[in-house]
Design a protein around this nucleic acid. Structure first.
Lengths: 205, 205
DNA sequence: CCTGATCCTGACTATTTGGTCAAGAATTGG
DNA sequence: CCAATTCTTGACCAAATAGTCAGGATCAGG
């Protein structure tokens, strides 16, 4: 693996930092930053509070580490859109990938949702920097497809917002979705069908 | 005066409870429940902390009062869908109404978003009760329209989820939207155009 | 103007919580 | 094996915070 990258850390340090981040993600995703205590994180990890603070200097640092660590994963599907690919299918793949991530990584989705809701104090420069650039790139690709007549003419920015909103909704508001649907539903499978239909309909020229 | 008799509250009580709820909404919408202190609410209202607690027994009670007080407003557009109306136009009107609410009442949108995110401890019975019933009614109406051939065949539950997700996104994730779009945009106007087109396209038989 | 009810607040308590620290336990390298 | 380093934790501190309370200020009705 990348020993060089982690060369400054012992095996125990790497293992325990990982355990802490994993437990903290679980707790932050449920309670948000302010609603989470270091004691809760420690309990979730099976470590003592001072021990958690031996590996991270503060609660803030754990949170910031998690956000930056997970940002790549979260943005990857958007960056993987292939300009040379078949336009409609590329978009539908992106929707599917994003929905799959909401299903498989709901904690990450909520972590980001909480952070944006509270004004993104740990992400301000990223929002206007890397995120914006990534979106701009995707928008350029989408515009190219539209001008080439491969997609219907829609506002690319709002197309992206709509995909984010719709896919993340199923992770972030899962409790509401479940309460409304009741038992006997698989929200994500149903959503996949609905969204595929919707974006196909919207974007087919 | 008779006003006191009508409400059980004095004029001062009604005025100050109103001031407190107004200020608390502002603070809760930014910081969430756990991130908000009574001191912050008091400062926002220009009252002393003990005075705030003279009108409400606890922070919890202020929060619960706000949620129940605002629920009607939040659900009204869905209840106003007119089964006798013109199907597509009724849905488009609902989308527009919901988007307008996100623009005009972003604090309310965020209040609910925070509450759902943290598992809706103050809304559990409402989610599975009144909300679910309201949605069920709307679903029945939508199904009727679909069977009558007035709307394309889509899953009505997920249609409603999509409308919620898309419209509330612009209030709840406003910071992200703004960071990505940059200056010189009116996100809500653009969204209105995008969503009108999208749902028209999706639902026209 | 008087009186009782309502309103308001400084000062307080109890609890929670982020974070520290000294000292003991475990691990590692030679 | 030993000694140095790393790891772990009980006990602790200081700040923040929800909530209390006695008593003074204000107001409404007579």
């Amino acid at each position: 693996m990348d020993e060089a990258k982690n060369s400054g850390l012992t095996r125990i340090q790497r293992r325990n930092r990982e355990i802490i981040l994993e437990g903290a993600l679980t707790v932050f995703a449920v309670n948000g930053f302010r609603g989470t205590t270091i004691d809760q994180i420690a309990a979730e990890c099976g470590l003592s509070k001072p021990n958690v603070l031996y590996y991270f200097p503060s609660k803030d640092e754990i949170h910031k580490t998690l956000l930056t660590k997970l940002l790549d994963m979260w943005l990857a599907p958007l960056e993987n859109i292939e300009p040379a690919g078949e336009a409609l299918q590329e978009v539908l793949n992106y929707v599917a990938a994003k929905l799959r991530m909401s299903r498989e990584y709901p904690r990450e989705s909520r972590l980001f949702a909480y952070e944006i809701l509270r004004g993104a104090p740990h992400l301000t420069e990223i929002l206007g920097g890397r995120l914006r650039n990534t979106v701009d790139d995707a928008v350029t690709v989408l515009r190219g497809w539209i001008e080439a007549g491969k997609l219907r003419d829609v506002d690319p920015h709002h197309l992206i917002f709509s995909i984010w909103a719709m896919t993340q909704h199923y992770a972030d508001f899962e409790i509401q979705v479940h309460a409304v649907l009741g038992e006997g539903h698989d929200p994500f499978s149903e959503a996949q069908i609905f969204l595929d239909d919707m974006y196909r309909r919207l974007l087919t020229p």
